[in-house]
């Protein structure tokens, strides 16, 4: 079967046709104009991944802590990851780079602080 996806690596936004096997496995891609496109297409059709960024309240601080995943995580795990963040209780101080949750939901990715909250 075929799937159309748009590459997000650069402003050209090549529309690519991806051929998948009957079991949904990546077979081939056309329509890309560079190798980054085909790599993206393969990943996107096999296991779409995204970076997540969010904020978590910090006790005693007006400003919540901004966090990110340390690497892209499977897109279909986003709702559970957001739920997991809701059970985090944080206290200041927190420093940029601090690991808030290690290996979230077995994705191999950490939740990492992206700003300092020093009271």
């Amino acid at each position: 079967m075929e799937q159309i996806i748009t590459c997000i690596n650069c402003p050209v936004g090549c529309r690519m046709q991806v051929v998948l096997s009957d079991s949904g496995e990546f077979v081939s891609v056309s329509g890309n104009t560079c190798p980054r496109g085909s790599a993206y297409a393969k990943q996107e059709c096999t296991l779409p991944e995204r970076m997540i960024t969010a904020v978590i309240p910090v006790e005693g601080s007006r400003i919540p802590l901004s966090v990110k995943t340390s690497s892209p995580v499977p897109k279909d795990k986003i709702p559970q990851i957001m739920d997991a963040l809701s059970s985090v209780s944080l206290k200041a101080p927190v420093r940029l780079g601090d690991v808030i949750i290690s290996d979230i939901l077995n994705t191999g990715s950490d939740i990492v602080a992206t700003r300092n909250i020093l009271l």
């Binding site: 978590i56 957001m82 739920d83």
Partner: peptide, 16 residues
């Protein structure tokens, strides 16, 4: 509401 209340109870993650 606050972020906290959303994360804890009223989330709407079904959209995706």
């Amino acid at each position: 509401g606050s972020i906290e209340s959303y994360l804890k109870g009223e989330s709407n993650h079904d959209q995706s």
